[in-house]
């Protein structure tokens, strides 16, 4: 059977992995290619690079990161952040990425999902989204609302409806990032993830809030996620991917075995 995937996420700004709280106080954590390689060797099932470079002038730096990664990492990896056109997607895929992810750009122009799926195949197109709990309303009946621009702008768009629409347009996977849980390390949003997983027929990747191996256990079992993004809990050395997998395996979650 398919294993549950553990996917380290590296936020890259101007060629360096950074981690900040609410986009402030960013600190450099290291070279993205070196970090990706370390996680690859430690048993990561996939890697996500998220380009948070503000200026489009620096876009070439990300392409260089992607291309250097391809020389030493032999698992799938995806790139997101600032991809707006088919050309943007093509450049990243040609540099060696397996998948591209779109977020704000897809909310503003949903057709980019369909165009990307037609050009490169659905398996290449990951629809990523930032979701925040709000009081249920006519526009947002589920009480889960889509935000864009790094969580700063509410769109009055229902997250569950957006997930279904993304699937119809041809997205191959969904990344559901909970703004409420992100960076707090108190666990993923189990209810949100489960609701999405039951609404669509494509893989769902939970994001935001992973702080302990038990949080991953909960999101894979109660949350019905196919994969989970990990960041802070491994970047600062609190856990290794090996630790997490060992814990999950002991508790009966099927994960990929590594040598």
């Amino acid at each position: 059977m398919l294993t549950k995937r553990i996917i380290p996420c590296l936020d890259v700004r101007e060629g360096k992995v950074t981690k900040g709280v609410e986009f402030k106080n960013n600190i450099d954590l290291g070279d993205p290619v070196e970090m990706a390689k370390r996680y690859y060797e430690d048993g990561a099932d996939e890697i996500v690079f998220y380009d948070i470079t503000a200026s489009s002038d620096a876009r070439g730096i990300m392409i260089d990161v992607v291309s250097r990664t391809a020389e030493s990492i032999f698992i799938p990896y995806s790139v997101g952040g600032g991809l707006r056109t088919l050309e943007d997607m093509r450049n990243v895929l040609l540099a060696g990425a397996e998948k591209v992810s779109v977020n704000s750009s897809a909310v503003l122009n949903p057709q980019i999902i369909a165009e990307g799926a037609r050009a490169f195949g659905s398996q290449c197109i990951v629809l990523s989204m930032d979701v925040k709990r709000t009081p249920a309303s006519e526009a947002v009946p589920s009480g889960y609302e889509i935000f864009i621009n790094g969580g700063r702008k509410a769109m009055g768009l229902d997250a569950i409806a957006w997930c279904k629409r993304g699937e119809e347009l041809g997205a191959g996977e969904l990344v559901v990032n909970s703004i409420d849980c992100d960076g707090v390390k108190q666990g993923y949003d189990v209810e949100l993830t489960r609701e999405v997983a039951r609404a669509v027929g494509i893989p769902v990747i939970a994001s935001g809030g992973g702080g302990t191996p038990d949080h991953l256990h909960r999101i894979f079992t109660e949350g019905e996620a196919d994969a989970a993004i990990v960041a802070s809990m491994i970047h600062y050395g609190a856990y290794t991917i090996r630790d997490i997998k060992h814990y999950l395996q002991k508790r009966g979650v099927v994960v990929r075995k590594t040598d």
Partner: peptide
């Protein structure tokens, strides 16, 4: 039950 298509991920 239902299966997801495409199959994406690690399998034995």
């Amino acid at each position: 039950g239902p299966i997801k298509i495409p199959q994406i991920g690690w399998n034995q």
